Simulated scan of single mutants.
Amino acid sequence: MSDRYELFLAVDLAPDLSEEELAEVRWLLGQGEPPALPTASADEPWAAFEGGGSPSIEFAGADVALLVPAPERRRTDGGVPWALTVRSCFLEEALTEVLEIAGWLLERSVTVGRVGHLRGESEGEGDGTFRALVRDRDGFELVDARSGASVLRTTWR
């Protein structure tokens, strides 16, 4: 296990998100008020990816959370997807919940293929871990970049 992690996620969210889902996404990014009944996580609700361009406390660079409409990628039905980019660094104790929230976001995504990565490092150790985050129509998985082995597979309900 690593002591600290970096999650990078770049996806298009479905254009037909409900107002409640969109409000929860904005809250997760630190861009809105908490929803009355958060659904992204079973644990204590928190704005997991609020960073808004602040320096990361764990890795070089900045934590970023951005959600914008993507009219240039208009769908054939005329819907405009929401472009989402997250780069968030966190400690090991938040890993399970961060992956749960990332899964909630990915379930609302229309992007298929490699959508990001999870990098882990331990204090004083060399390279650490690097896992590609891959989404398909049925779920997502973390794939170890060195071995190509699936480390975690989550299927939509």
Rank of each mutant, 00 (worst) to 15 (best):
S147E: 10
A70T: 14
G116M: 03
P81W: 12
L106V: 09
E121H: 02
E107S: 09
L95T: 07
W104V: 00
T111C: 01
E44A: 09
V80R: 01
H117N: 14
R131K: 09
D144M: 04
G126M: 15
D138G: 04
A102F: 04
D63F: 08
P45V: 00
D127C: 09
D3P: 02
L66C: 12
V134M: 02
G52D: 08
T96K: 11
R26N: 11
E6F: 02
L95S: 07
W82T: 06
L118A: 03
G53T: 02
E97C: 09
V112H: 02
G113D: 02
G139S: 05
E123Y: 15
A94C: 13
G124T: 07
D127N: 12
L66D: 13
A83H: 15
P69H: 14
V11M: 05
C89A: 07
C89T: 13
L84E: 05
G30P: 04
V143N: 01
V25R: 01
T155A: 11
V11F: 04
A60P: 11
L37P: 07
A23Q: 02
D12N: 13
R74D: 07
G126K: 12
V143T: 05
W82F: 14
P15V: 14
G61C: 03
G53N: 08
G139A: 01
E44T: 14
D3A: 09
F90D: 00
F140Y: 02
R146D: 13
E97P: 07
E141L: 06
T39M: 13
A10M: 07
E93W: 12
R75L: 15
R87W: 06
L95I: 11
P81Y: 10
P45M: 01
A145N: 10
